[in-house]
Amino acid sequence: MTALGLLHPGHFAEDDYPRIEQLLGSDIRVDLVHTDTGTGAREQDALREMGSDTRLAAGVEQLRLAGAEAVVWACADGSFVYGWDGAHEQVRALARAAGMPASSTSFAFVHAARELGVRRVAVGATYPPDVAGLFAEFLRAGGLEVTGVHGSGAVTAAEAATWGEKELLALARGADHPEAQAILLPDTALHTAAHLPALEKHLGKPVLTAHQVTAWEALRLADRRVNAPALGTLFTREPLVQA
């Protein structure tokens, strides 16, 4: 049994993870601990507070007791808002507190893109423009080219959590660009686990979403590979040999 530990902000779209766990197979367990989101505002200062070392460390003891082999801060905006170097410091502090390998959803997007061998990505963002811009800067710092950032106008996580396949497809289509090799949807408040095959079929290219890459990143840290076509191209590709 491989146990994956996730720290998830609040209670939006967390029901994606039991679905992902089922699709990954019976020998993988996803343990979820909810963190305090503070005000929950999608503003830079509030996001930095949400991702503070103190808030994240509060949840790691429960994951240790559950036997987690790796921990991922299952949040994008509460990570990339610190910038590339600051996000590295965040996961290093998390690893020290947890006593196990650690990462975050932000780094998961970069690692997943590298896994697929893509360099040019389009972003479909539900964040305010300034926050979405920080994600694009983070991706560029990770060596990716961002063809553009398409905003949705969703202001709150609660609003994003109500979206279904129709809204997701509109977001992905709005973000798509002829030069983009993959489309990234970074919000962990979006329900995406049930819609990945349909999104990739309609777009004709890999679609990377927050919950999907978070689970993949946890497996990567635990040195596990799983073939799960229902979770998109990322879970069907053989690993690439990095130069």
Rank of each mutant, 00 (worst) to 15 (best):
R120F: 02
E167C: 08
T126P: 09
A136E: 05
T147P: 06
F135I: 01
Q62T: 14
G153E: 12
F138D: 09
C75T: 01
G142V: 06
L134K: 12
G99L: 01
F138W: 07
E61T: 12
W73Q: 04
F138Q: 07
E49A: 15
R120P: 05
A175R: 08
A74S: 12
L47C: 00
R92T: 06
A157D: 15
R119A: 12
R114E: 14
L63V: 02
W84M: 12
R119S: 15
F80P: 04
D176H: 04
A70S: 14
H150C: 08
A125E: 09
F80L: 08
R55V: 11
E61I: 05
M100P: 08
D130Q: 13
A158M: 10
S79C: 10
P129C: 10
S104I: 01
A66I: 04
E69Y: 03
A160C: 10
A66W: 03
H111M: 07
H150N: 09
G153N: 13
G124K: 08
G143D: 07
T54R: 15
L139M: 14
D77C: 13
T54S: 13
F107V: 00
G117P: 10
A170F: 04
D176I: 05
H111P: 07
T54C: 09
C75F: 00
E165V: 12
H111R: 15
V149E: 03
W163N: 01
V81R: 04
T147E: 12
A108I: 00
H150K: 11
H150E: 11
E179S: 14
R114Y: 09
G133R: 04
G174F: 09
R96E: 14
V121N: 07
R114D: 14
V121W: 01
A108Q: 01
A87N: 15
L65I: 10
R92F: 03
F135Q: 02
W163C: 02
A112C: 06
A57G: 11
M100K: 05
T105D: 00
L56E: 00
P178S: 10
T162A: 12
L116V: 10
V60E: 03
Q62D: 13
T162K: 13
L47A: 01
F107T: 01
W84V: 13
P128Y: 09
V131I: 15
V71S: 02
R114K: 13
A113Q: 06
L116T: 11
G151H: 14
S79D: 05
L168A: 04
A108P: 06
E89A: 15
E89Q: 14
S52G: 11
C75K: 00
A97G: 04
G164F: 10
